[in-house]
């Protein structure tokens, strides 16, 4: 019997409410508003209250996929990563670094955004880095 709550930040809008994820025996079973958070002060909207619901939804990806002909097929991490590196480096060699680009994510963390732009700027050598959140 294990129950704990994990203090984190709502993943939906930019308000950034404090939420607690309720974890019962290793499974997220609910969301509570953080009572002493200065922004939401123990309140949430409907999205916040159901922030845990998509975690185990059908269709969550659990394995890398690599295209074989028309189909995306499950692959190992090594295979997927090697393929990504090989193709990106080939294209860079053939067409130059500015033939590659990335869309970073307004849903991912600061650390992840930092890493992706670092890959494209420092390793690939292009400033073709943007995000879709002008939208």
């Amino acid at each position: 019997m294990e129950y704990q709550t994990v203090r984190t930040t709502c993943t939906y809008c930019g308000t950034g409410c404090g939420v607690l994820l309720e974890v019962l025996d290793g499974e997220v079973v609910g969301t509570l508003p953080q009572k002493d958070h200065p922004i939401n002060e123990g309140k949430l909207c409907i999205k916040g209250w159901s922030a845990h619901e998509f975690i185990y939804a059908d269709g969550r990806l659990t394995k890398p996929l690599v295209r074989k002909g028309d189909k995306l097929e499950e692959a190992s991490w090594d295979e997927a990563l090697d393929f990504v590196a090989k193709r990106l480096l080939e294209l860079k060699k053939k067409n130059g670094p500015d033939s590659l680009g990335c869309f970073s994510s307004a849903k991912c963390t600061n650390e992840e955004n930092y890493l992706l732009q670092k890959i494209f700027r420092a390793v690939i050598g292009t400033n073709n880095v943007d995000h879709c959140a002008r939208l």
Binding site: E2, Q4, T5, L20, Q34
Partner: peptide, 13 residues
């Protein structure tokens, strides 16, 4: 339980 200065629900065992 105190979590970095923030009390949050917890099941003690």
């Amino acid at each position: 339980i105190d979590d970095g200065g923030h009390p949050i629900p917890h099941l003690f065992t």
